[in-house]
């Protein structure tokens, strides 16, 4: 089975290009940056929520969402304004209104994974599992052996994509899955009923259930929280949290700091920086633009916050990943 990144869509990443600040953009320095998102040229795929809202508008009295709303810039949208209500920043009310009423968050966490540097060693997985006391099956970040359409193989670590339009959030019947104003999708394991609807909905297999009791968890002197859900609660679902607690304390995520190749960058959309464990700091937008970064499965309209820079480990000077036939 081969899976491709869609290069066509990579052009949608207008990172670094100057943009006209859209009407809804509340502060100039937040506008005009990464517009990685389809809403453009009027042929954008209709998102689930938009679709339902249009349907609802048609049935009821609400005005249809006009074109103006579609042009909310990525940055304005990313800075989100109402990420905390779990609606991914666009539910019910216009984003502009919300932006007026709430102070913008100072960070919007993201990640860049440079596949040219990934040798598939699995250190990220190990570090994550250790930090979160996971079972060996629970690979919140998992390194997949991939093959592109030319038959090349490469390794692809897959964390939770922290989708901006997360299908897992839409289908959760009890709002146990929510999105913070820092753009991180988290699970409240004290509310989750364990229906696993989110596992069905996630296109990236990023969610892992706590199937078995009798797993011995460490005894920690801190409460499990959605940001640091350790120990995991049995009968609920868990997934990568981006180690948002680390990030907010100025530390790298466990996987990023555990990666000996520096392939994983923690990034912030608002301050426009990305950092890896080698201490390499880059300007996020420029780096993505220069390297033709893509997101995975763009056709699903999930708008991942994880960008990939494609490659086959060539920066590692190994020939194992370069072979086209074997």
């Amino acid at each position: 089975m081969s899976w491709n990144f869609d290069f066509k869509h990579a052009k949608g990443l207008r990172i670094g290009e100057p943009e006209q600040p859209p009407a809804s953009c509340s502060s100039a320095d937040l506008c005009g940056l990464p517009t990685a998102i389809p809403p453009e040229d009027g042929d954008s795929p209709v998102s689930r929520r938009n679709f339902l809202r249009l349907l609802g508008g048609g049935l009821g009295t609400a005005a249809l969402v006009g074109a103006g709303a579609e042009f909310i810039s990525y940055r304005a949208w990313a800075q989100g304004a109402n990420g905390t209500t779990g609606g991914g920043g666009m539910s019910g009310k216009g984003a502009a209104t919300m932006a007026d009423t709430k102070a913008p968050p100072t960070h919007q966490w993201a990640m860049v994974i440079d596949l040219r540097n990934c040798d598939g060693c699995g250190s990220c997985t190990a570090a994550c599992q250790k930090a979160h006391s996971l079972t060996p099956d629970q690979t919140w970040i998992k390194v997949f052996a991939m093959e592109d359409s030319a038959g090349n193989t490469y390794n692809m670590p897959r964390p939770c994509m922290q989708c901006e339009n997360p299908p897992c959030l839409d289908v959760c019947p009890v709002h146990a899955t929510f999105r913070t104003d820092q753009g991180v999708v988290l699970v409240n394991q004290d509310r989750c009923i364990g229906c696993r609807m989110c596992m069905a909905a996630c296109p990236y297999e990023a969610r892992y259930f706590n199937w078995n009791s009798g797993v011995s968890y460490p005894r920690l002197p801190v409460q499990p929280t959605p940001e640091f859900p350790v120990p995991q609660r049995e009968g609920t679902v868990g997934k990568c949290t981006f180690c948002v607690g680390n990030l907010n304390n100025g530390l790298l995520s466990e996987c990023a700091s555990g990666c000996p190749m520096g392939a994983i960058y923690n990034a912030d959309v608002i301050t426009d920086v990305a950092v890896n464990a080698m201490g390499e700091t880059v300007k996020l937008s420029q780096y993505l633009y220069d390297n033709n970064a893509v997101t995975f499965k763009q056709e699903n309209n999930t708008h991942p916050r994880v960008w990939y820079i494609l490659g086959h480990g060539q920066d590692l000077d190994t020939d194992t990943d370069q072979s086209t036939s074997a």
Binding site: R53, L59, H175, T225, P226
Partner: peptide
């Protein structure tokens, strides 16, 4: 007795078009 998350969660009608839900 466990502490509550600091996050607010979505209100019941959030998520899809409120008029669809009402209908």
């Amino acid at each position: 007795g466990l502490p509550k998350s600091v996050y607010e969660y979505a209100r019941p009608m959030d998520g899809v078009g409120v008029n669809l839900v009402r209908t």
